[in-house]
Design a protein around this nucleic acid. Structure first.
Lengths: 215, 215
DNA sequence: CAATTTACTAAACACTGTTCATAAAATTTT
DNA sequence: AAAATTTTATGAACAGTGTTTAGTAAATTG
């Protein structure tokens, strides 16, 4: 039946429309400030209609969570993979930071919210997107070892530490903690840097630190 | 006038009562789930009364922000400062983690929320608590240098990197990202660890990394 | 004792996520 | 083609949120 198919397609379309509207509003106004009513208004349907396509707001968040990870992987795919492993690792870090600041709400959604992760845990179904992203980091770390880096260091733990450092740096920047320190903290103001310079400086310090772990 | 003083004291008392009620509810039910109405009910006043003592919810959050930092410093003060600098740095890291998991809501309040930091920035008045905490880390890093650690590394940048790593580790744990990886990610499950073991392992890996930066 | 200031609150406003009975459209059956 | 049925969409309501305002009760002052 072609008719049933067309209807099914139409339903799928509306599901996607809700998602794109939600995504747009999330990145415009932020996650907390986006209401179901606002999403409904954007797609010109009633708020109740949203609930015919998504169980609740968390399910919408979860759908965007998936999208967000695909976007992150897309950012990673721009990296030149013919580089040596260590240069690749640094490029990965830079791409991560770039992603965090180009898509702050998407970043917050996939890395700073607990709700979508709870959804993943409850769903019990695998979460390839997240695993693939970590796997990418892990394999790069392993490859670095063949270049003489990180000898006698456990790769999973080190991968987590690198991820944590990047995540910490990005989040402390976005909450304004870095900015405060750059402006007010006596120990930091001696460097005479603005927030972005401080962020770059910190990243460079991290690169410098990792470089010392060769041989 | 003794009367005016007593009244003033009574007013200050009520301000503190609001704060302790808010603190209790925040740690019980979490920040988002705590309403002005609930705080009002706990102190047996009307919701509108709260607004006679605090401009809005953010001002309450800011007051707790200050308290939270004092609590953190209190945790730090338990550290044995007669230890060598590097051991002190590790102890500082452990105390930080302990604080993050003993007081998850306070931690989120002071390190993961942007609202109280905006308040600090708008107030223009100095924020000694935060500066002192960072200063402590910075001075310990500097002291480590005299023990042969972190040679030719810029101390402010390194301090931020260490803070970022700890912050990243704590937040990724609390969002459930660590837990997911420990359960589902092929590269991680080979370690056969539960979440807490993985967290400890990651911290140990970090300590191991820092130890390699001697001489 | 009356006037005034201070302390407090009930009620309302404009929101939020979510549910449910009802209405409208589309499809299937008669 | 008309009637019955299923699918799709919604208005209105529920219980909650932060916040403002107008008005009341209590305490202080003249």
């Amino acid at each position: 039946m072609g008719v049933a198919e067309r209807k099914e397609r139409h339903k799928e379309d509306l599901k996607k429309d809700i998602l794109t509207a939600a995504k747009q509003l999330f990145t415009e106004k932020g996650f907390e400030a986006t209401s179901i009513r606002a999403i409904a208004e954007k797609i010109e349907y009633s708020p109740a209609t949203i609930y015919l396509y998504y169980k609740d707001k968390n399910e919408i968040v979860h759908a965007l969570h998936q999208d967000g990870f695909n976007l992150l992987m897309q950012h990673f795919s721009k990296i030149d993979f013919s580089q040596p492993a260590f240069a690749r690792l640094i490029a990965l870090g830079r791409a991560y930071m770039q992603f965090a600041f180009e898509h702050p709400d998407v970043y917050a959604l996939i890395f700073s919210m607990k709700e979508p992760m709870q959804h993943v845990a409850e769903c019990e179904k695998e979460w390839h997107e997240g695993d693939r992203a970590f796997s990418m980091l892990y394999k790069t770390v392993e490859a670095c070892k063949e270049e003489g880096y990180f000898k006698h260091m456990e790769s999973v733990g080190l991968s987590f530490i690198i991820w944590s450092t990047m995540h910490g740096l990005c989040t402390l920047h976005k909450t304004g903690h870095l900015e405060h320190m750059a402006l007010s903290c006596a120990e930091v103001t001696t460097l005479n840097m603005d927030v972005n310079a401080l962020l770059d400086h910190n990243f460079e310090t991290f690169v410098n630190l990792l470089e010392k772990l060769k041989n």
